[in-house]
């Protein structure tokens, strides 16, 4: 089950050599540490780019997060359940 969240989140990430690397974020009163990025892609809305990441955390949860280039903020888009 994919649950849509669409909430801005506090994220610690690296910006290195023209790339973005999400590291950990706060959501639901917990800090989720990212262990791997499963997929990443860009999307464009008009002149603004967003960077999407599907990440796995230490608790083996899977989330889709996005760095919104227009608002310059991180957004948690989806939380994937066990079946997804």
């Amino acid at each position: 089950m994919v649950q849509e969240v669409s909430e801005p989140v506090e994220m610690v990430g690296h910006f290195r050599a023209g790339r973005v690397y999400p590291c950990r974020f706060r959501y639901g009163g917990r800090v989720h540490r990212i262990t791997s990025v499963s997929s990443c892609w860009e999307s464009r809305k008009g002149a603004y780019l967003s960077y999407h990441f599907v990440v796995r955390t230490t608790a083996d949860d899977v989330f889709e997060v996005r760095f919104d280039g227009r608002e310059m903020r991180w957004v948690l888009d989806y939380e994937y359940g066990d079946q997804d």
């Binding site: 997929s39 892609w41 899977v62 889709e64 994937y80 066990d82 079946q83 997804d84």
Partner: peptide, 10 residues
């Protein structure tokens, strides 16, 4: 394959 990357459990 891209969908599977986005859904590691698939």
């Amino acid at each position: 394959s891209v969908e599977v990357l986005a859904h590691p459990r698939w």
